[in-house]
C-alpha cells in the first residue's frame, strides 16, 4: 500500500502519481478523496482521486506543488512509498442522467473533474467540458477529458492555448448556445465563486467540489467546515461536493488562509534544506 508505481509531470508544478492502493481502487467512486501523509512527522492532506485502475490495484492523484507536503510528494520517485494512504473518503458524486451537463475545471481542479466527466458520460449524459489555466502548460489532462466529452473548450488567461479569456467566458458562450441541465465546477475557490455566480444567473443547478484544510478527514476535527445554505457543513463527511450556489465562498477563501504564515515559513525552510 502506498508504493508509487508511476510518476509523470503534467506541468512544471503539477504532477501525477499512480500509487498502489488496491482496496481503495476497488471501492472508490467519482468524487471520493484520500488522505495521505509522508513520513512519521508528516501532515495529513486530502487529495481527490483522479482515476483508478482496479486490475492493477492503483489510484492516481494529481498534485500541485504548493506547500511542504506536496513538495515532499514531488520529491518521491517511482518505487518509493507514500507512508500513509487512507480512503476513499467523502460522499461520492451523485451521477444521474440529467441531459446535458457542463463540466468546468480550472488548473489542478481538472484532475478531480475527470472522474466526474467520465461517470457523467457513462450515464448517458451529453457532456460539454471547459478546462482552463492561466497559461498553456497549466491546462492538464486535455486528452483524458476530451475522450469522455462530447465537446471540449479550452480557455487560457493569456491566450497561449485554446481561446483567450477566463473560464467563465467559455462557459457563458456554451450556456447561450445550449440548454444546460446541470453544471459541475472544480478549481481554485475564487474560480468556483465566479463560475457559481455565472450558473446562478442562468438558473443552472450546479455542483462544486471544495478543497479545504483537513486534519483527520473522518469527521472529527472540524477544520474543513464551511457555510452552505447558512448551515455549517463538514467537507470531509458531508462533502466534498455541495450545491455551488449555496456555498459561502468568501468564508471558504478566508479559512484557506488559516495557517498561511506557518505554511509559508515551513515551505521556505524546506526549500532551503533540500537545496543545500
Amino acid at each position: 500500500m502506498g508504493k508509487i508505481v508511476h510518476k509523470e509531470n503534467l506541468s512544471e508544478n503539477v504532477f501525477k502519481l499512480e500509487i498502489e492502493a488496491p482496496i481503495i481502487a476497488r471501492k472508490r467512486k467519482a468524487g471520493h478523496f484520500v488522505l495521505i501523509k509522508i513520513g512519521d512527522q508528516g501532515e495529513r492532506i486530502p487529495l481527490t482521486i483522479s482515476s483508478a485502475n482496479e486490475q492493477k490495484g492503483t489510484i492516481s492523484l494529481v498534485v500541485q506543488k504548493v506547500g511542504v507536503t506536496s513538495h515532499k510528494l514531488a520529491a518521491l520517485k517511482a518505487g518509493e512509498e507514500v507512508t500513509d494512504v487512507v480512503g476513499p473518503l467523502g460522499q461520492p458524486t451523485e451521477i444521474e442522467h440529467k441531459g446535458t451537463v457542463l463540466c468546468a475545471g480550472g488548473g489542478v481542479g481538472i484532475a478531480p473533474l475527470l472522474p466526474i466527466v467520465e461517470a457523467m458520460k457513462a450515464k448517458g449524459n451529453k457532456v460539454i467540458s471547459v478546462i482552463a489555466g492561466r497559461t498553456k502548460e497549466l491546462v492538464i489532462l486535455e486528452n483524458e477529458i476530451r475522450a469522455h466529452s462530447d465537446e471540449l473548450v479550452i480557455m487560457t488567461d493569456d491566450g497561449s492555448y485554446g481561446q483567450k479569456g477566463l473560464i467563465t467566458a467559455g462557459m457563458e458562450e456554451i450556456i447561450r448556445n445550449h440548454t444546460i441541465d446541470m453544471a459541475v465546477t472544480i478549481g481554485p475557490a475564487v474560480m468556483m465563486k465566479f463560475t457559481s455566480l455565472l450558473t446562478k444567473k442562468y438558473n443552472i443547478p450546479t455542483i462544486a467540489s471544495l478543497n479545504t484544510i483537513m486534519v483527520d478527514g473522518t469527521g472529527m476535527c472540524g477544520a474543513c467546515r464551511v457555510t452552505v445554505g447558512g448551515m455549517t457543513k463538514f467537507v470531509c463527511v458531508d462533502g466534498p461536493e455541495f450545491h455551488a450556489h449555496e456555498v459561502d465562498y468568501d468564508e471558504l477563501l478566508t479559512r484557506l488562509n488559516a495557517y498561511n504564515d506557518a505554511e509559508q515559513s515551513a515551505l521556505e525552510n524546506f526549500v532551503k534544506e533540500t537545496d543545500v
Partner: peptide, 14 residues
C-alpha cells in the same frame, strides 16, 4: 465525531 459549535456569529473565523 463531529465537534459541536454554538452557532454564534463569527464561529468560522480563523
Amino acid at each position: 465525531g463531529l465537534p459541536r459549535f454554538m452557532n454564534i456569529p463569527g464561529e468560522n473565523l480563523i
